[in-house]
Write a protein that binds this DNA or RNA. Structure first.
Length: 452
RNA sequence: GUGGGUUUAGCUCAGUUGGUUAGAGCGCCGCUCUGUGGCAGCGGAGGCCGGGGGUUCAAGUCCCCUAAUCCACCCCA
């Protein structure tokens, strides 16, 4: 094969493709995004879209120079037409806050709930559930610091997951406090671990300077032994009065609403702009890292970007990770429907008639037609493969009588109707429910054929 | 950036201690089938054995390099 797609990217494929998987199914992506849209919009979220590339400065300032995203994960677009210095967006929040400020959205009713979805880019090495181009569903609320908004955001995240059909999902909830709390905690950790520097793993020595909280969820046994020995105090012990009250309020709402969560003091945000409430959604089966998505409050971000202070909170899901989780749980994704009607001419001379009938029928229902004449045997095989519900044969008899010979591929029912009755017939057929057919089962996991 | 696995037909994979024209199943195309599908039978197309270099009389097979891919580390979705 001459040219292949860039490393870490996926083609999203049509049903029946040999290499189809939940992650590479175009239909699965559409279905997932559509499901999220339904949940979010019925909660009042409005769609917003920002460019996939932005000024590098936006991410450097918004996300933070010291984060891995900025240090090694940004795709820089050095030259783009007449101007350089762009990056492919490595997350969604900074751009949405930028758009909020730039477009004067603060004049909309506050708090403003926004959502978006689309591709995200990070220059990382590839592994299960981690790609260089992947997709996120984002939800952001701007203009309110009320803990009620935090709780609602978490509840909505759980709602989306439930609506998708996922069961084994856990919310890990924490608070990283206000900036001063976080500084105090980091100072505490630095002092504590610096005294035992020789026992820390190399990775954790590095973490000690960059982000000491990361040491707490180190995979190294030696680190974990040390943490247990020192009985390290959790972040939550360092919350200031306001942050503590906020955090307790959030939990109070979640309990009221019956949203299950686990307190997890080791929750650490990789991005600098977060403060107070932080959480992640986890699931086994998406690979080494089980995070489906994460969220948090970012009240200082708008100011960092040079705008008026605006409190905000948001979360993002990894679409591919959700699809992997669905696969791991064996949740069946909705199957693609075939055409309701397939018109086939039996003689070359009648192909244009078949086309005309099909094109007219599209005013009512999904209809396809064969571009060449076929013998009945081939026509049925072809229709079968396409997942057709009704096939209409058009031969000399039908032309002569102005009729269509219809057959239902699933039930075997046959009937003859006049061409003029077709629209009404399709209209009625459209109402009959639960028609679901997978036109091309995957070869390695064929679905058993039902006999009529 | 680091470590390990894998790479042979459209797909999933066999291929012996190196030894003639490289195999299977599935899929695809055709026929049995000139107005009735799924089954079955028969036939067919389809391979620079990821790429490059080396060892050898001889390489899909052994060695080196490289790329892609998968998994894992760091970190994240």
């Amino acid at each position: 094969m001459a040219i292949t797609r860039p490393k870490g990217t996926n083609d999203l494929l049509p049903p029946g493709s040999p290499k189809l998987s939940p992650v590479t199914s175009a239909a699965a992506h559409i279905w997932l995004t559509e499901t999220a849209r339904r949940v979010l919009e019925r909660a009042g979220a409005q769609r917003i879209d920002t460019p996939v590339f932005e000024e590098a400065e936006l991410v450097k300032r918004g996300v933070g120079d010291s984060t891995d995203i900025v240090r090694k994960e940004m795709f820089t677009v050095y030259y783009f037409g007449d101007h350089g210095g762009f990056i492919l967006r490595p997350e969604g929040t900074a751009a949405i806050v930028r758009a909020y400020l730039q477009n004067g959205l603060k004049q909309l009713p506050t708090p403003l709930k926004l959502w978006t979805s689309g591709p995200i880019f990070r220059a990382e090495n590839v592994q299960k559930g981690r790609y260089r181009q992947f997709h996120q569903v984002d939800y952001e609320v701007l203009g309110s610091a009320d803990p009620l908004v935090d709780a609602e955001a978490i509840a909505l995240m759980v709602d989306v997951v439930r609506e998708l059909g996922l069961k084994e999902v856990r919310v890990k909830l924490g608070s990283i406090g206000d900036p001063a709390d976080r500084e105090a905690y980091n100072a505490y950790l630095r002092e504590l671990f610096t005294a035992h520097l020789d026992r820390l793993s190399d990775d954790s020595k590095d973490r000690l300077t960059r982000n000491p909280m990361r040491i707490l969820d180190s995979k190294s046994e030696g680190d974990q032994d040390l943490i247990a020995e020192l009985s390290v105090k959790p972040m939550l012990d360092f919350l200031g009065d306001e942050a503590r009250a906020h955090f307790e309020a959030v939990q109070g709402y979640l309990k009221d609403w019956g949203v299950p969560y686990d307190l997890d003091p080791s929750i650490v945000r990789g991005l600098d702009y977060y403060r107070r409430t932080a959480w992640e959604l986890h699931h086994e089966g998406v690979g080494a890292k089980s995070a489906l998505g994460g969220g948090g409050r970012y009240d200082g971000l708008a100011e960092i970007l040079g705008g008026q202070a605006t409190p905000g909170i948001g979360w993002a899901f990894g679409v591919e990770r959700l699809l992997l989780a669905l696969e791991a749980e064996g949740v069946e994704l909705p199957q693609t429907e075939g055409p309701l009607l397939y018109v086939v001419a039996l003689d070359e001379a009648n192909v244009p008639h078949a086309a005309k009938i099909a094109i007219d029928a599209r005013a009512v229902a999904r209809t396809e037609f064969a571009y060449r004449a076929m013998k009945p045997g081939s026509a049925f095989k072809d229709a079968e493969r396409r997942g057709v519900r009704w096939i209409a044969l058009l031969g000399s008899q039908e032309i002569e009588n102005g009729t269509l010979s219809l057959k239902n591929l699933q039930s075997g029912e046959q009937r003859v109707i006049g061409v003029s009755e077709l629209a009404a017939f399709l209209e009625a057929e459209k109402q009959t429910s639960n028609f679901s057919h997978n036109p091309q089962p995957t070869p390695h996991n064929p679905t058993p054929q039902e006999s009529p």
